[in-house]
Design a protein around this nucleic acid. Structure first.
Lengths: 182, 182
DNA sequence: TCCGTTTGTATCGAGTCGATACTATCAGCC
DNA sequence: GGCTGATAGTATCGACTCGATACAAACGGA
């Protein structure tokens, strides 16, 4: 029953995600690039996030680039990394994200019910990720390597990359995220 | 947050649904045909179920027919209706449905939590269906036109089609389903 | 009988998707 | 310095999705 509801909801969301000339995957890619941190805006990271291959992602990026919604820029340091950024148009388009309808619907639930749904879905997701050996992406602030209020360089610190983090970084999605509890 | 979890879960499920040489939509179609009643096994009903067009569904059915998983049979009564049935192979394949993994994961949740998740998701789905003017498919037994324990013809009765229903019908998905409460 | 509706299909163009193959860059190591 | 292997990204192929459009056939009511 629970599985069927998730299936129905997915299908409905997917049908709604043919808006503004984009298709569902293109919206997902755009959403990711709008929410990921500056260490995770690459084709490889996006491929892992979407549970697909680099080849497939490369084509989706071609489509988004043709539509002038994203830009590819070579990394100044590493010669084989290509950084992805939203263009001004791409950023503006996020206001029309079909997923916003679901988000606003979820806010109409009673707080207790919403919390229960969130907890249950998080448990399901964690279970499936573990069962399939997948790395669970997450927000920087909740990561094992996150150090709040570092003294040097910035307000926070990433112990994995040895790099300062600002407030905006702390709330963004990171490829290298690892949940705090083992 | 809730919306993001649903998005993550959808994506994961979708990635898992490239199994046994089928793609996600083909699995959805197969699932529908395995679960719908004998008044709803048509291309048009499937199109409405999947929130897509008849043209798209027709192609998916072509693919499934090529793979010998479904069969198209002309309706004996109406000359323009084509009934869809699973072949023996198609039915056997349902045992490998990738969605079963989610179903079994859901069963591992504590009963109270599972009930809360189910209720919350049902509310979300109902809200979105209403907001987008979509007809909510459902199981025969829960329909406004369902009459339990009819005296004539069969154990139950459909007041819309004026037709007897057996136990198997009562548990199947129907295109003409209408929720009991107005 | 005519006309509008319903059921299903064919075709087109853009794009997804996995698989495979490829290039370029980097990092460690001798 | 040079080798080797891992990593980041792209190109191409074939099967397929998907909406849009157009179409044929069957039905059904006026």
């Amino acid at each position: 029953m629970t599985a069927e509801l998730i299936e129905r909801l997915s299908r409905l969301l997917r049908a709604q995600s043919h808006a503004a000339g984009l298709n569902p995957v293109q919206w997902e890619a755009l959403r990711y690039l709008a929410r990921c941190n500056r260490f995770s805006n690459t084709a490889g990271a996006l491929a892992r996030y979407l549970h697909t291959t680099k080849g497939t992602v490369s084509q989706t990026l071609n489509a988004l680039e043709r539509k002038r919604l994203i830009a590819r820029k070579a990394d100044p340091v590493s010669g084989r990394i290509i950084r992805l950024t939203l263009t001004r148009v791409g950023r503006a388009l996020m206001a029309r994200d079909p997923m916003l309808q679901l988000a606003s619907a979820a806010e109409k639930l009673a707080p207790a019910q919403r919390a229960a749904v969130t907890d249950g879905l998080a448990a399901l997701l964690a279970y499936l990720q573990r069962a399939n050996g997948l790395r669970p992406f997450g927000v920087c602030r909740t990561c094992r390597h996150f150090r709040a209020d570092a003294s040097a360089g910035g307000p926070h610190w990433c112990a994995l990359l040895d790099h300062p983090l600002n407030e905006s970084d702390a709330g963004a999605i990171c490829v290298d995220h690892q949940p705090r509890a083992a």
